[in-house]
Computed example of a mutant assay.
Amino acid sequence: MTAELTDPAVAGFVAAVNAGDKEAFFAALTDDATMSDDGTDRDLREWTEREIFSSNGRMDVEEVSTDGRTLTATYTNSTWGSMRTRWVFTVTGGRISRFETGQA
């Protein structure tokens, strides 16, 4: 069951991940966006290529916070299989300026 995404920037991010659409993914982010994985800042382009695009990453969103910017999702890719993850987004000017993810 997929929870309803209420923040347009976050919805665009999830849709781009699930479609494997790099162009839409990076369009959802600010030019200077940053990210962290399990509390460690990572190189966004390197991490997304490895963890999302070249490994067929997919998000099945289970829960959404009331502001629409914190998600719990089952994240699946061909490297790690499926795991329950938490995603926290900072949205600036309608685009994501930072996201933090890790195991939930």
Score class of each variant (00 low, 15 high):
Arg86Met: 08
Phe99Trp: 15
Tyr75Ala: 07
Thr101Phe: 01
Ala104Pro: 04
Ile96Tyr: 03
Glu63Ile: 04
Asp21His: 00
Asn56Glu: 13
Glu4Met: 11
Ala73Thr: 08
Gly93Gln: 10
Phe25Gln: 06
Ile96Asp: 01
Asn18Cys: 07
Asp43Asn: 14
Ala33His: 08
Thr92Leu: 12
Arg50Gln: 10
Asn56Arg: 11
Ala3Cys: 03
Gly12Glu: 02
Ser54Met: 09
Ser54Gln: 14
Glu51Gln: 15
Glu100Trp: 00
Thr72Met: 08
Glu51Trp: 14
Arg98Val: 04
Gln103Glu: 09
Arg69Trp: 06
Val10Trp: 02
Glu49Val: 10
Glu62Lys: 14
Thr6Met: 04
Asp38Pro: 04
Asp60Arg: 14
Arg50Phe: 13
Phe99Tyr: 15
Arg95Trp: 07
Phe89Ala: 00
Gly39Ala: 13
Gly39Leu: 10
Arg50Tyr: 14
Ala104Asp: 11
Val91Ile: 11
Gly102Cys: 02
Ala33Val: 13
Glu49Phe: 07
Ala16Glu: 06
Trp47Ile: 03
Gly102His: 03
Pro8Leu: 10
Gly57Met: 11
Lys22Tyr: 03
Asp32Phe: 07
Val91Pro: 02
Arg69Ala: 01
Val88Gly: 00
Arg69Gln: 10
Ala11Gly: 07
Lys22Phe: 04
Val10Ser: 03
Asp7Tyr: 03
Glu23Val: 04
Thr92Pro: 09
Ser97Trp: 01
Arg58Met: 09
Glu51His: 15
Thr2Ser: 07
Thr85Ala: 15
Arg84Met: 02
Thr72His: 10
Val14Gln: 05
Trp80Lys: 09
Gly20Cys: 10
Trp47Ser: 03
Phe53Gly: 12
Ala33Phe: 06
Gly39Trp: 09
Ala15Trp: 04
Ala24Pro: 06
Ala104Met: 07
Val91Met: 10
Thr74His: 13
Gly12Gln: 05
Glu46Ile: 04
Thr92Ala: 14
Asn77Tyr: 11
Thr85Lys: 15
Ile96Glu: 00
Gly81Cys: 07
Gly57Thr: 13
Ala15Tyr: 05
Pro8Phe: 08
Asp38Glu: 14
Phe25Pro: 01
Ser97Glu: 06
Trp87Pro: 01
Glu49Ala: 14
Glu51Ser: 14
Arg95Ser: 12
Asn18Ile: 11
Thr40Cys: 00
Ala24Lys: 15
Glu63Asn: 07
Thr85Glu: 15
Gly57Trp: 03
Asp43Glu: 14
Tyr75Gln: 05
Met83Val: 09
Ser55Cys: 08
Phe89Val: 03
Ala33Ile: 12
Gly68Asp: 08
Val88Ser: 07
Glu63Gln: 12
Gly93His: 08
Ser55Thr: 13
Arg86Ile: 02
Phe13Val: 05
Asp21Thr: 01
Phe99Ile: 02
Glu100Met: 11
Thr34Val: 14
Ser54Ile: 11
Thr92Ile: 13
Glu23Cys: 04
Asp31Ile: 07
Gly20Phe: 13
Ala24Asp: 10
Tyr75Asn: 02
Val64Met: 05
Thr48Cys: 15
